[in-house]
Design a protein around this nucleic acid. Structure first.
Lengths: 159, 159
DNA sequence: GCGCTCAACTTGAAGCGTCAAGTGTGGAGG
DNA sequence: CCTCCACACTTGACGCTTCAAGTTGAGCGC
């Protein structure tokens, strides 16, 4: 950051930024609301369950899970503690290396994902994919990749 | 929601969705981090101050401010109480209609915005505009409008 | 094999947002 | 006028996230 005159946003950029900022808030709220209403869980809890459900053996290291769900390890630890109380996940030290903790989706947890996923996917489709053209969807993917890259150059999601 | 087979996301849509979900989280975090580091305020607090700074007389009704900042009235009320303690904003009943409350940016609050805005705009530019082409920016604006429209059909931001 | 350090969590407290009740004002109906 | 109702907030409690310490396990140097 140098001391020169800041590069303010012009009218179009302003419009774009307001539009994006609103979308970020509204999307978060809408997805949390749908999941709270239909499944009594937060979006982040859903992401944890869904990510585990797609992992080999439905098992993953906490640190790996934190990266894939874009959350801090601390946040994940608190959330998994809650999910454990519901008997959807259990934790155990990694037998190969005691420093790691494995999070494992239980059968009950799997059933929760199966019950919740269709409604959630439907909502994502309704709010994001249905309103956009194919071309807009392609561009959106590229935009996400570039912005994520700018935020964290060591981020995943290449190609 | 009918009972038929859910319309799952295909591989490309999945990619797009992961990319967007990550962007939503990462952008929120990055902007909050920058503002916390450089100005000790949250992104929402900044939005409130910045929105007031552009209003006529630097004054706005609470309910109007809530809409423009995409927040609930309750959230706004809590936040403005905090901003009042810092002497950045003050509240007074609307003389024209006692049901409304006017939020007014103080001189100190104005100075806070002036001091904070350049660094914030720079960060927005770095994370969002610099990595995107002009065409992507145009598409992003359209995407935001369509998605916001899908989430809340009575939403503003037409044209 | 004894400490050192680092990495992977875990925990508790403090702060922010939401939800569900409150309060207070203005207008509408009788 | 008086009552009732709707609207614009405000408040308090509760839940979730963050932040800053802890705790524990692996390697590493000597």
């Amino acid at each position: 950051m140098d001391a020169s005159e800041p590069r303010w946003l012009n009218a179009e950029e302003r419009q774009t930024w307001l539009s994006l900022a609103a979308m970020v808030i509204n999307l978060s709220n809408a997805l949390d609301t749908q999941l709270q209403r239909d499944a009594q869980i937060t979006h982040f809890e859903y992401q944890v369950l869904a990510t585990l459900s797609e992992a080999a053996e439905r098992t993953m290291r906490m640190s790996e899970l934190a990266v894939l769900t874009n959350g801090s390890l601390s946040r994940l630890s608190h959330v998994v503690k809650r999910l454990e109380k519901q008997d959807w996940v259990r934790r155990t030290p990694d037998p190969d290396n005691g420093r790691y903790t494995l999070a494992i989706l239980t059968e009950t947890g799997w059933e929760k994902v199966v019950a919740t996923a269709p409604g959630h996917v439907e909502e994502v489709r309704r709010l994001v994919f249905d309103p956009l053209t194919q071309a807009q969807q392609r561009t959106l993917r590229a935009i996400g990749q570039r912005v994520n890259q700018a935020i964290d150059p060591t981020d995943t999601c290449p190609q």
